[in-house]
């Protein structure tokens, strides 16, 4: 599925200053039973967000109207554990287009890039700064500039650059995905496959 193009995103952000947020928290396994990619946002952070009787947990950030936006800011080692792409789908379906952390788990990062959510890795110091700026002013805006590969706190102008390989960057800027690329090289793959021993 090709996805939305990503260029410059300016938005308020939702802070989640917890480390090692695993994909079981992002979307618990019992909500993986769909056969279509629909509605996963409703169960994003289900067990942190709702009590067992489905009433909202008031102290969880997604239930706090003070915080909103298209950017989710998480603690170190975000997205560890299960490879379920449903976690990235849930983040996207809820309305986030960018996740910021000081460190991402590999599979989650790849899954995000494959569906059009931009993972932005910043230094631990910059991450702390983002958390404190949002804490001081929940309406503060953050600009994520993909062409320039920068993330900027709009109020102070403080900025940091982030890494993304140029192939993935082109994909995100244009809304292309890997399958578009791979299907164009079918005959090259078939020649390669013919030489495989098993």
């Amino acid at each position: 599925m090709a996805y939305d193009k990503f260029n410059i995103l300016t938005s308020t952000a939702v802070p989640l200053p917890i480390e090692n947020v695993d994909t079981d928290q992002i979307i618990p396994a019992r909500f993986l039973k769909a056969t279509e990619r629909k509605g996963f946002g409703d169960n994003l952070f289900r067990d942190w967000r709702y009590n067992s009787d489905d009433t909202p947990k008031e102290d969880f950030v997604l239930n706090n109207p003070t915080y909103s936006g298209k950017i989710l800011v998480g603690g170190k080692n975000f997205g560890s554990g299960s490879s379920r792409e449903h976690a990235a789908w849930a983040v996207y379906d809820y309305g986030f287009r960018c996740v910021v952390s000081s460190f991402f788990a590999d599979i989650f990062r790849g899954n995000c890039l494959n569906i059009g959510v931009l993972p932005v890795q910043v230094s631990p110091e910059f991450l702390e700064k983002i958390f404190s700026v949002i804490d001081a002013d929940p309406n503060t805006e953050i600009e994520v500039n993909l062409p320039e590969q920068t993330i900027t706190l709009k109020a102070s102008g403080e900025s940091e650059s982030f890494e993304i390989n140029s192939y993935k960057k082109e994909n995100m800027l244009n809304g292309y995905d890997d399958i578009d690329y791979l299907t164009k090289m079918k005959s090259e793959i078939q020649e390669f496959a013919a030489e495989r021993p098993f």
Binding site: H86, I107, I115, L182
Partner: peptide
């Protein structure tokens, strides 16, 4: 290694995925 569903589709349609070497 484990992959996401987008990559499952890649393997089905092309027997390849796109991965930077770890």
């Amino acid at each position: 290694f484990g992959i996401g569903t987008s990559e499952v589709e890649m393997v089905l349609s092309s027997q390849c995925i796109m991965q930077p070497k770890p």
